[in-house]
Measured scan of single mutants.
Amino acid sequence: KEQQNAFYEILHLPNLTEEQRNGFIQSLKDDPSVSKEILAEAKKLNDAQA
C-alpha cells in the first residue's frame, strides 16, 4: 500500500521531467521497502524545480 501511494504521488508531481519520474518509479519497483525515502526525494526535487 505504501508503495502504491508513493507511486501515485510521484506520478502527479508536476515539476518532474519524464526522465526523473521514470527513475523514481523504477527505484520504487526495484526496492519497495524504501518507498518513503524515494517519495521524499521526489518531492524535494519537485519543489526545487518549481
Results as ranks from 00 to 15, higher is better:
residue 1 K to W: 05
residue 1 K to R: 04
residue 2 E to G: 07
residue 2 E to A: 05
residue 2 E to R: 03
residue 3 Q to A: 04
residue 3 Q to W: 15
residue 3 Q to P: 14
residue 4 Q to R: 06
residue 4 Q to H: 08
residue 5 N to I: 13
residue 5 N to L: 10
residue 5 N to G: 11
residue 6 A to P: 05
residue 7 F to I: 08
residue 7 F to N: 04
residue 7 F to P: 03
residue 8 Y to K: 11
residue 8 Y to T: 07
residue 8 Y to F: 07
residue 8 Y to A: 07
residue 9 E to V: 15
residue 9 E to I: 15
residue 9 E to Y: 15
residue 9 E to C: 15
residue 10 I to H: 00
residue 10 I to V: 10
residue 10 I to W: 01
residue 10 I to L: 08
residue 11 L to S: 09
residue 12 H to Q: 12
residue 12 H to L: 11
residue 12 H to M: 10
residue 13 L to R: 00
residue 13 L to S: 02
residue 13 L to M: 14
residue 14 P to C: 06
residue 14 P to E: 04
residue 15 N to I: 01
residue 16 L to M: 02
residue 16 L to P: 00
residue 17 T to D: 05
residue 17 T to S: 05
residue 18 E to S: 11
residue 18 E to H: 12
residue 19 E to T: 11
residue 19 E to Y: 10
residue 19 E to A: 10
residue 19 E to D: 08
residue 21 R to H: 02
residue 21 R to Y: 03
residue 22 N to V: 12
residue 23 G to L: 15
residue 24 F to L: 06
residue 25 I to M: 12
residue 25 I to Y: 09
residue 25 I to P: 00
residue 25 I to F: 12
residue 25 I to N: 03
residue 26 Q to L: 15
residue 26 Q to Y: 11
residue 26 Q to M: 15
residue 26 Q to P: 00
residue 26 Q to T: 08
residue 27 S to E: 07
residue 28 L to R: 00
residue 29 K to L: 09
residue 29 K to A: 08
residue 29 K to S: 05
residue 30 D to E: 08
residue 30 D to L: 15
residue 31 D to C: 03
residue 32 P to C: 04
residue 32 P to R: 06
residue 32 P to M: 12
residue 34 V to W: 14
residue 35 S to L: 13
residue 36 K to V: 08
residue 36 K to P: 09
residue 37 E to P: 05
residue 37 E to Q: 13
residue 38 I to A: 04
residue 38 I to L: 08
residue 39 L to K: 03
residue 39 L to E: 04
residue 39 L to D: 00
residue 40 A to M: 10
residue 40 A to P: 02
residue 41 E to R: 14
residue 41 E to Q: 12
residue 42 A to E: 00
residue 42 A to R: 00
residue 42 A to W: 01
residue 42 A to V: 02
residue 42 A to S: 03
residue 43 K to A: 04
residue 43 K to D: 02
residue 43 K to M: 11
residue 43 K to S: 06
residue 43 K to G: 04
residue 44 K to N: 08
residue 44 K to Y: 09
residue 44 K to F: 11
residue 44 K to D: 06
residue 45 L to N: 03
residue 45 L to D: 02
residue 45 L to A: 05
residue 46 N to E: 02
residue 46 N to H: 03
residue 47 D to A: 13
residue 47 D to N: 08
residue 48 A to S: 13
residue 48 A to G: 06
residue 48 A to L: 15
residue 49 Q to P: 04
residue 49 Q to A: 08
residue 49 Q to E: 06
residue 50 A to M: 09
